[in-house]
Design a protein around this nucleic acid. Structure first.
Lengths: 221, 221
DNA sequence: GTCTATCCATACGCATGCGTATGGCACAAG
DNA sequence: CTTGTGCCATACGCATGCGTATGGATAGAC
């Protein structure tokens, strides 16, 4: 069996193995947890291995952040995939985001080290990509640019805040049916039916209605 | 003149001076920035001073967190003060929270170190207090307990997410009139007029209408 | 079998932070 | 003037992490 995570499988590590381990450490203990010697111990080797694959700690950090950025964009594409309905796209993103806790936790850990210039650079790119995706969704729903920006920011903020709540005070997050109610409330509130200012949407459907309002197929990716 | 912040004024430091400096360091560089020797340098003294006021670093951390918790609760009380209208209370909290960036940044820095048991304890207490306050507001607006919880969590998440956005990608936050539009949108969306499930509120007033719906004076503090 | 490149271990110097031990200095009490 | 206490400096040992220098092991090339 090849685990590629423990200290037994591969007789020879790769740079990406180190990057993966660095991301794990980051999620667990923040930026300062990305230390060469502890990572080496966890990988079952010594520093000698590390300084063969990387010139220094900064290079490892960069590799880890690049891996993270790649994962993030791939995950977003894999999650929403080929969903044509912009309404369903937002719903999918929101549900997946609130379900998968691991990726969000990693984001919070990385973003907490925004004082590091390299980290800041990556965090900004990833955040802007996410926001742009949401802006495109709301634009496809018929919102004018300014209102699409506002609603996208609103939804993104709510999404990020839920991550924070789940991490800091998980007992404040409901479970089971209550959680589904909570999700439905947010989705219904955060996705008005059109770009008009009044009369948001008043029908309470089952999961999400398939009333594709604009259906703009040639979006992006 | 007594500055109590630099390294010149008081000939003798107090434990609270250290706690304040620890909070400043926390806001700037996270939990690991609360280090004895760097703080001593910043205060213009040496470790000898610190270990007279505190037995160890953990005690400083506790003192700093206690100071933080005290500040947080005082600030909330000072912000909303004696506002009787629950609608206006939520609006005030929201506006103050989005205006004052410093306190929110500190919260994010502290919450990022939730792996530390002591930090986690304080973060949970502060978060629960804030959430409870919001739940009370929504309850005063006529929401049943479950829906009050949902809306309070929703609003709190949005509030936290805005902090995060402002810290990580400030260029995604609008300024001036755009920001006021954004604020108004969130407030209008996050404070439905009553606890009913349909027909949220359809009038678009100026700032916030003074249509006190329930006016429950004997809330709590 | 020898040679060479790949991958890693060992050992060192350096820097920084924690905690302790001890000495010093100012100032008020007596 | 002495004494004691509050407040701090200095110096030490210890631990951990970064980066470097160098040697060793293994596997394919020839």
């Amino acid at each position: 069996m090849k685990t590629t995570t423990a200290a037994d499988a591969k007789p020879s590590l790769t740079a990406e193995d180190w990057a993966r381990a660095a991301l794990d450490a980051m999620a667990a203990g923040g930026l300062d947890a990305v230390a060469v010697e502890p990572l080496a111990r966890r990988l079952g080797v010594t520093k000698g291995s590390f300084y063969w694959h990387f010139p220094n700690r900064e290079a490892l950090l960069r590799a880890a952040l690049e891996l993270w950025e790649r994962r993030e964009t791939e995950e977003v594409l894999a999650r929403v995939g080929d969903e044509p309905d912009p309404y369903a796209r937002i719903v999918k993103v929101f549900k997946e985001a609130n379900a998968g806790y691991r990726s969000g936790r990693l984001y919070l850990a990385i973003a907490a080290a925004e004082d590091h210039p390299l980290v800041r650079e990556f965090v900004q790119r990833v955040s802007e990509k996410r926001m742009n995706y949401l802006v495109q969704c709301y634009t496809a729903l018929g919102f004018d640019p300014v209102r699409a920006q506002h609603w996208a920011r609103f939804a993104y903020a709510t999404f990020m805040g839920n991550l924070q709540i789940r991490r800091d005070t998980p007992e404040l997050m409901p479970t089971g049916a209550q959680f589904n109610e909570y999700l439905k409330l947010m989705i219904k509130t955060l996705i008005p039916r059109d770009g008009a200012d009044k009369g948001e949407h008043k029908g309470a459907q089952e999961d999400h209605p398939h009333v594709v309002p604009l259906q703009r197929p040639g979006g992006g990716a």
